[in-house]
Design a protein around this nucleic acid. Structure first.
Lengths: 101, 101
DNA sequence: TGAACATATGAATAGTTGTTCATATGTTAA
DNA sequence: TTAACATATGAACAACTATTCATATGTTCA
């Protein structure tokens, strides 16, 4: 080993990790996740409850999905999004603990 | 309550939370934090071990400090930075768990 | 005091990102 | 099939961000 020590992840993991945190680093996406904490929701309902356009929500949902923070299922014309796993909750919970000090 | 439900944080907390995650959303800052996981380090040593300019590291350390992720102490000409608290470790650990699936 | 060293900082720039707008895709019901 | 509805997507633009460069600030030692 030259510059990195034993606990430094490799470049790929570092970038993946940074990318993951970037996803959490936007208040619109956080709002979507907080809504989904309560249960699945359709795109239109998310747009309504967050008072944003359908397009903006859809773009952000795509980012959340690509990063595997949410899943989706279609039911007729509607598409319902839901939390992908519990890491989402715990990461956000740790973040909240940090800022409440 | 109108648009927000009982678990939705207020706007201020949401923005603070997004800002916190933004700090983690950069690979240079993550690298700095991983080095600091091993113990405190001076600005120059960080620059050397990460193979980056002193200025770039200093700018990023400022962001980490403003967001209370690191502390600093001066010892002569050197300034040593260290992790501010254990939330930093746990947030990053949760992130790593998520991407390793 | 002045030189040498370590760190911080402001301005500039290139690259990235979130939203909007227009429109495309997909689904249902008549 | 066609209209109406729900969602996705691409392009464009404004806002933001990380690095570089030049230089300022702060510290030590001779």
């Amino acid at each position: 080993m030259s510059k990195a020590n034993k606990t430094m992840p490799n470049e790929t993991e570092l970038y993946d990790l940074a990318d993951l945190f970037k996803v959490f680093g936007d208040s619109t996406r956080l709002k979507i996740l907080f809504v989904l904490f309560e249960g699945e929701s359709s795109v239109g309902d998310l747009a309504t409850s967050l008072n944003m356009t359908q397009s903006a929500i859809s773009h952000q949902l795509k980012i959340l999905k690509v990063n595997k923070l949410v899943n989706s299922r279609r039911d007729g014309k509607l598409i319902f999004y839901s939390l992908a796993d519990e890491h989402v909750r715990s990461i956000i919970a740790q973040g909240r603990e940090h800022i409440e000090e």
